[in-house]
Amino acid sequence: MTTTATTPESRVDHDAAGERLFDELIAQDSRIEPRDWMPADYRKSLTRQISQHAHSEIIGMQPEANWITRAPSLKRKAVLMAKVQDEAGHGLYLYSAAETLGTPRDRMTEDLIAGKARYSSIFNYPVLTWADIGAIGWLVDGAAICNQVPLCRASYGPYGRAMVRICKEESFHQRQGFEILLELANGTPEQRAMAQDAVNRWYAPSLMMFGPPDEESPNSQKSMEWKIKRFSNDELRSRFVGMMVEQIRVLGLELPDKDVRFDEETGRWEHGPLDWKEFREVLAGRGPCNAQRLERRREAHEEGAWVREAAAAYAQKQALKTAQAA
């Protein structure tokens, strides 16, 4: 597809009046819009974050789509299809938000396929059972919501607005995931065991979705100053653990973490040690499904090329016809 976007290169890089306005808007907690002047690093950092987020939605379709044809009831099948469809929709709004910063969707897609762009590492774990569909909704979407709700107030307008809509749909997804697990937890012994096994496998990876501990997170500080990010990785992680402690009781299952406790002094929920070595391995491309996920995206993109070319050629011919008729 051809895409149009504003080109940042055409703009003056340094503009004293623009910079003053930018600083004022940030200080007032107001919004930066696509036509406003912004520091090159702000643009770069946002483009990286929003495109990574879009890629995560698109790659994230795969693990769940893996169960569409096998969903165990027609209602669950319909709900799962709708969920994966929402993710494609989220990818679309996010790519559009990133395009307002000057990078066309085509280039972002190429970077993803070439392995140059990142997406959430969580999607490099395999989705082995139907209970995983529940655990992903509950834990992975739950963690995503904790991360994303503050982004609704991100200083960049198009991102913040996209996040408002995405968060509404994500919270619906989380409820669906919880409902799947609840049904399994109250089902046959096999179903209950399937649910506990899924929670065991997805708990630690979902905690690691908040990113490395604060002292090791290189991009966080500047993002907080620019009010793209509002809370630190560890703050959000702790908040999430607190929520899970409440909800696992309702499920009647257990969190696979004996060290979860509320620290009265810090007012934070603490959790057991996480395997950051594994996190870095998966991030570096050595997770169980990294190669598979990228290959599937590449295949869909390349095998769809002739369709996109046909659509573009047809649109061009139609435009020519209209012009000739005029």
């Binding site: 709708a82 994966v84 869909a300």
Partner: peptide
């Protein structure tokens, strides 16, 4: 089957 495999994202949405 097409959902996540369509020629473009808009078509993932439409076929879904």
């Amino acid at each position: 089957w097409w959902i996540s495999r369509a020629p473009e994202l808009e078509e993932d949405v439409a076929l879904a």
